[in-house]
Design a protein around this nucleic acid. Structure first.
Length: 887
RNA sequence: GCGACCGUAGCUCAGAGGGAGAGCACUACCUUGACACGGUAGGGGUCAUAGGUUCGAUUCCUAUCGGUCGCACCA
């Protein structure tokens, strides 16, 4: 049956190839984890996407990498698990739902906690569906039977267990601290949720008068509105300028409060006037100084960033409005005498973008030092987590070595509610697994649960083991934990990777993963980040619709250099799509030639292997070795290129062309061998490529005569290197023949002799060995070069008028009647000679260098000598040809 | 201030202590019975700059210039 009869379209159509295939895989249960006794395990937990919206190009890259890894290991026969799931993403999701409600003029307070949470769950279900839809489009082979959500019952239990254990151990505490406050979301943030941006601000210089009328002291501030909470002014204890003033009282210019001048080492004498106003409730450094000097903490704002009752006449104003007003008032009073431009960085909320306010409030914290110490010990020991690329280990260590306590309470509703209750009767705090009904201390039932929820990352930190059933001791934990590798972008090393490591050490006594593979981000074509605000994001689904999932995946994986960013370019997707088309057509060629009576026998059918067959099998084997080696070290770009080059430049460009001879010839055995080789190599190549391009490889594989009925490439064995296919002789012979063929094509092109015009071709072999190779390959030369007469010999009668070319081992002559200009030919050969002169000279210089001969490794010297002999040989041939022509 | 990364063909990027590579773009020819999403042949780079290590550096080290990012500070 021919390809036309089978209706194989001439062009690859990704839509047709990819339709329904994913569902078919799922029906066959091919992605379900296997847990067979005695088999090695390989597991990955997905970095759970937020249920806030659609997956972006970064997800597509992240998932393509993981899928390539897990598909290969699955094909290699390991027990594999790729566990999918999603993250509730506290602040992000709540913000999205609140924004949605706001369009209807509803606030979360209008609904109340319970009703509001119902809305969020609805939202979550909707987006979870969208995400699953996108996963299926990307073709990722996750085990849906194990899908988890961070707020599942099981995972919630894990969270509560961890909270209670850490609390009981004294590693979780509640305290009144300066934290990063997001006035837009009205919640506390952890340090890493604050993004610092450089802002051109202003530095305001003011005079605070001494109460005794003895002049004034000059202070500078960037945030004049906080002066309402000033409770001191500080100078450096050794600053001569202010020695007499320490301890004196000042009249605060606005509040009239009497505030002291204090001395503290923290103050930088060089900055500004060397005097700082101290606002303990609104600045972390001032807070610490305030504690050292027992200063009063006056909070002057409310949770929304508006001035509160401590702000006198400014009460009710927004903080920035207040700044303007205070500046105006102070200028009028003559207190503010100078405004300078001042560049400084200002913290913004990662989620809402609001300017973060350092804010004094009562929050829950994780005491980090003991947890960090364990993580550091692990990394300094023999069983460290393997970061790929390893430079990220330094990034990680630097952070964990300088870690500060982690603020984990959030004033939100969407999330894991903190399992703490307060007794209104005796004031006791109760932290427990089960909801208490009465106070453990006084027995009273006037219990009030803490309103706050936990930082999203608190639950994410448990992901590798909570998803497998922890704190229960499950079979999944036995088989698949610790996981093999965690794949993520570098932007969440601190948020997530670090926290998983110390959590896992604390609660499972094991590191959560052997390797951490850190990849870059996918940037827009111009190198900028893809972002919603810039509107330069590219939706993976749009790309898939036009070019197919396989093209997108291959482009993303092939562009991956470990840890480096890549730019998204449509030309690169197009190139990947063209590759898919090339494979499609090569396969189509194979199908078209199979014929009704052909029975695939695999290697048993290799009865009459020619040089080309031996060569392609050798090259396939070398490619398999290369690809496997590269995949083991996460070199997806290298592995992808190796397959690309093999399939396109060797299988298609050379082997298929050469195969046409036996396929169209009379030798039934040669024809059958060729078909077996064509199918075998294609089959193996498809398996090799399957982790990169799952759809097209399955589609073609299903049509191959080598495929057993009902089998899927998903669980076919992955190709492995086998020394029996190594064939140096075939490599050498094909190398020589390819050199000659290319050389002739080159001459034809340069002399404008079209391929359709037959030529006379004389090949002078260097020795009888080479002559034998060329004679064996005569049909190959005929196939590509269209000679009307072909002479191969160690001794050919060279016509006077002929273009000559020299390759390693042979000299070629093309007597092209009417086209040869002797002078031009001499000039061309002179140019060739000059090139060879350069090569010879370079290597001679090297070999004449005593230092080189004495110190370079023997094999390097040998290859240099061989190169020299080859170049010198070629040069001698060219010279003698020039002399012949000159007569 | 500390740290990391990058600077290679017109563009986007691989690479490696011993003859500079890919994709796209470009030039010429080819509508050849798998494929024009194709074929064949070609042009194009003192591998940012200056030192150093080495028999040998585009690759390793140092400095400089240019770019990106993270952390800390920021009255």
């Amino acid at each position: 049956m021919t390809a036309e009869e089978k209706n194989i379209p001439k062009s690859y159509d990704p839509q047709a190839v990819e339709a329904n295939r994913y569902e078919w895989w799922l029906e066959q249960n091919l992605f379900k984890a296997t847990e067979e006794e005695g088999k090695e395990s390989y597991s990955i937990v997905i970095p759970p996407p937020n249920v806030t919206g659609n997956l972006h190009m970064g997800h597509a890259l992240n998932l393509s990498i993981q899928d390539a890894l897990i598909r290969r290991k699955r094909m290699q026969g390991l027990n594999t698990l790729w566990l999918p799931g999603m993250d509730h993403a506290g602040i992000a999701t709540q913000a999205r739902v609140e924004a949605m409600l706001r369009q209807d003029g509803i606030s979360r307070y209008d609904l109340g906690r319970e009703k509001f949470l119902e809305k969020v769950w609805e939202w979550k279900e909707k987006y979870a569906d969208t995400i699953r839809q996108q996963w299926s489009k990307l073709g990722i082979s996750v085990d849906y039977s194990r899908e988890r959500f961070t707020m599942d019952e099981g995972l919630s239990k894990a969270v509560r267990t961890v909270f209670v254990k850490l609390y009981d151990k004294g590693l979780i505490y509640r305290g009144k601290r300066i934290i990063n406050w997001d006035p837009a979301q009205r919640t506390a943030l952890s340090d890493i949720e604050v993004i610092y941006k450089d802002i051109q601000g202003k530095l305001y210089h003011m005079r605070y008068p001494f109460e005794d009328g003895s002049g004034a002291i000059e202070v500078a501030t960037t945030r004049p509105e906080t002066m309402l909470g000033d409770t001191a002014v500080a100078v450096h204890p050794e600053d001569e300028r202010y020695q007499g003033m320490i301890g004196k009282l000042l009249d605060h210019p606005i509040t009239g409060r009497k505030i002291p001048v204090i001395a503290d080492e923290y103050v930088d004498k060089e900055f500004g006037t060397g005097v700082v106003k101290i606002t303990p409730a609104h600045d972390p450094n001032d807070f610490e100084m305030g504690q050292r000097h027992n200063l009063e903490q006056i909070v002057v704002m409310n949770e929304a960033g508006q001035m509160n009752e401590n702000a006198d006449k400014y009460q009710g104003m927004d903080r920035f409005e207040c700044r303007k007003q205070i500046v105006a008032d102070l200028q009028e009073m003559g207190v503010l005498f100078k405004i300078e431009e001042h560049a400084h960085s200002v913290g913004h909320s990662e989620r809402s973008g609001a300017v973060v306010e350092p804010f004094l409030s009562t929050q829950w914290f994780v005491k980090m030092q003991p947890l960090a110490d364990a993580a550091i010990d692990l990394q300094k020991g023999d069983d460290a987590v393997n970061f790929v690329p390893d430079r990220f280990e330094r990034t990680y260590l630097q952070w964990i070595e300088n870690i500060r306590d982690w603020c984990i309470s959030r004033q939100l509703w969407w999330g894991h509610r903190i399992p703490a209750w307060y007794c209104d009767h005796c004031g006791e705090t109760i932290v427990t697994m089960d909801d208490p009904t009465s106070c453990t201390k006084c027995g009273h039932d006037a219990l009030r649960r803490d309103e706050d929820v936990l930082d999203t990352w608190f639950s994410s930190a448990l992901w590798p083991f909570s998803t497998m059933g922890w704190p229960e001791q499950t079979k999944d934990l036995d088989t698949f934990y610790p996981t093999s590798v965690l794949v993520t972008a570098y932007d969440i090393i601190f948020f997530w990777v670090a926290r998983m490591i110390f959590s896992a050490l604390e609660f499972t006594d094991k590191k959560p993963f052997e390797d951490v593979l850190i990849h870059g981000i996918v940037r827009a074509e111009d190198g900028r980040k893809m972002s919603k605000s810039l509107g330069n994001g590219i939706d993976p689904l749009d790309v898939i619709e036009k070019y197919g999932t396989d093209a997108l995946r291959f482009m993303l994986l092939n562009g991956t250099a470990p840890g480096n960013d890549q730019r998204f370019q449509f030309e690169r997707v197009e190139s990947a799509r063209n590759f898919a088309n090339k494979i499609w057509n090569a396969s189509r060629f194979v199908m078209m030639n199979l014929g009704e009576d052909f029975t695939y026998q695999g290697a048993n059918g290799f009865a009459k292997l020619g040089t080309a067959e031996k060569w392609i099998l050798h090259r396939l084997n070398a490619t398999i070795q290369d690809v496997n080696a590269r995949m083991e070290v996460y070199d997806f770009g290298g592995a992808g290129s190796a397959i690309y080059e093999f399939l396109w430049n060797e299988y298609c460009d050379w082997y298929i062309e050469l195969a046409k001879m036996p396929l169209n010839g009379d030798d039934a055995q040669a024809k059958s061998t060729t078909l077996n080789v064509l199918v075998y190599v294609l089959d193996q190549s498809l398996r090799l490529l399957h982790p990169f391009m799952p759809f097209i490889t399955e589609e073609i594989w299903q049509a191959l005569p080598s495929t057993a009925a009902g089998a899927s490439i998903v669980t076919a064995s992955y190709p492995a290197f086998d020394a029996k296919w190594e064939d140096a002789q075939a490599e050498k012979e094909m190398g020589l023949l390819m050199d000659i063929i290319r050389s002739i094509r080159n001459t034809r092109a340069e002399m404008n002799v079209p391929p359709s015009r037959p030529i006379t071709l004389l090949i002078k072999a260097k020795d009888s060995d080479t002559e034998a190779i060329l004679t064996r390959g005569e049909s190959y030369i005929r196939r590509f070069c269209n000679p009307e007469a072909l002479t191969i010999s160690t001794d050919v009668a060279v016509p006077e008028k002929a273009v000559s070319n020299v390759v390693t081992g042979a000299e070629l002559f093309l007597p092209l009647a009417g086209l040869i200009d002797i002078d031009a030919e001499i000039a061309r050969l002179e140019k060739e000679k000059k090139k060879l002169d350069g090569e010879v000279e370079r290597i001679e210089k090297k070999l004449n260098n005593q230092g080189f001969v004495a110190k370079a490794p023997a094999e390097v010297i040998e290859t240099e000598k061989a190169k020299l002999a080859d170049y010198a040989d070629k040069r001698a041939t060219v010279i003698s040809r020039i002399e012949e022509l000159r007569g």
